[in-house]
Simulated assay, not measured.
Amino acid sequence: MTVKTTLSFTDRHHRFLAEKVGQGAFATQSAAVAAALEQMMQDEQERDVALSALAEEIRSRMATPRTAFIDQDDAFGAALAAVGAARRV
């Protein structure tokens, strides 16, 4: 279903839309706005997925008992040794 609406743009935005239509990137200014909205919707969905995954990882790590923690020297020892060796070269 298509809904007609009225939108207002700054001169800068209007020129940009007109240029994109003139270059053939979009058939109409409405198509360009619709594409921008679709991109915003996709970005929001991807952000929601990423935030959910991050929240789940935080919950998982918070449930990890302290006895299962890894010492920072064990976690980063190899990387620090490699950096130190590279600096000596």
Rank of each mutant, 00 (worst) to 15 (best):
M1Y: 06
M1H: 09
T2V: 10
V3F: 10
K4H: 05
K4N: 10
T5E: 10
T6Q: 11
T6K: 07
T6R: 05
L7G: 00
S8V: 09
S8W: 04
T10L: 08
D11A: 08
R12H: 11
R12T: 14
R12E: 15
H13P: 00
H13A: 15
H14V: 01
F16C: 02
L17P: 01
L17Y: 11
K20G: 03
V21N: 10
G22E: 11
G22Y: 07
G22V: 00
G22I: 00
Q23P: 00
Q23W: 05
A25E: 15
F26V: 00
F26M: 07
A27L: 06
A27H: 08
T28M: 07
Q29W: 00
S30H: 03
S30D: 08
A31D: 14
A32G: 02
A32I: 01
A34H: 13
A36N: 05
L37M: 10
E38T: 13
Q39V: 03
Q39N: 09
M40Q: 12
M41D: 12
M41H: 05
Q42M: 08
D43I: 02
E44K: 12
Q45K: 13
E46Q: 12
R47L: 13
D48G: 04
V49I: 15
A50V: 05
L51T: 02
A53N: 07
L54F: 08
R59D: 15
S60E: 09
R61T: 04
R61N: 14
R61D: 05
M62F: 04
M62H: 13
A63H: 09
T64C: 11
T64W: 02
R66N: 05
F69E: 09
D71V: 04
Q72E: 14
Q72I: 14
D73S: 15
D74G: 05
A75M: 15
A75G: 00
A75C: 03
A78F: 06
A78D: 11
A78C: 06
A81L: 13
A81F: 03
A82S: 11
V83F: 13
V83N: 01
A86E: 09
A86K: 03
R87Q: 08
R88A: 14
R88K: 14
